[in-house]
């Protein structure tokens, strides 16, 4: 069994009010030097067998179809 990690982030041009709220909390807590925070999602996909190209392709299709909304989000994946 292998694990493929899919990270999904809002595209840079999409407003992320949640990230902004978190950045505001950091400032109040005294974590200085934070320029900005963007919040994303991480999916850990466990696949049967090895994470070969075919499996990665399948996870990629899954990311495009379901895990991410390509209108507002980008995704990246790595074997983790």
């Amino acid at each position: 069994m292998a694990r493929v990690v899919v990270d999904v982030m809002l595209k840079p041009e999409i407003l992320d009010p949640q990230g902004q709220a978190i950045a505001g909390a950091c400032e109040r807590l005294g974590f200085s030097g934070v320029r900005g925070i963007r919040q994303g999602k991480r999916f850990e996909v466990e696949v049967e067998g090895e994470a070969d190209e075919a499996k990665l392709d399948e996870v990629r299709r899954m990311a495009e179809t379901l895990l991410a909304n390509p209108v507002i989000e980008d995704y990246s994946l790595h074997v983790g």
Partner: peptide, 17 residues
């Protein structure tokens, strides 16, 4: 409908949260 791509765009968190 947006997720189904029957309509364009997407609906995201209110800017006020």
């Amino acid at each position: 409908l947006c997720e189904s791509h029957l309509l364009p765009g997407a609906l995201t968190r209110n800017s006020s949260l």
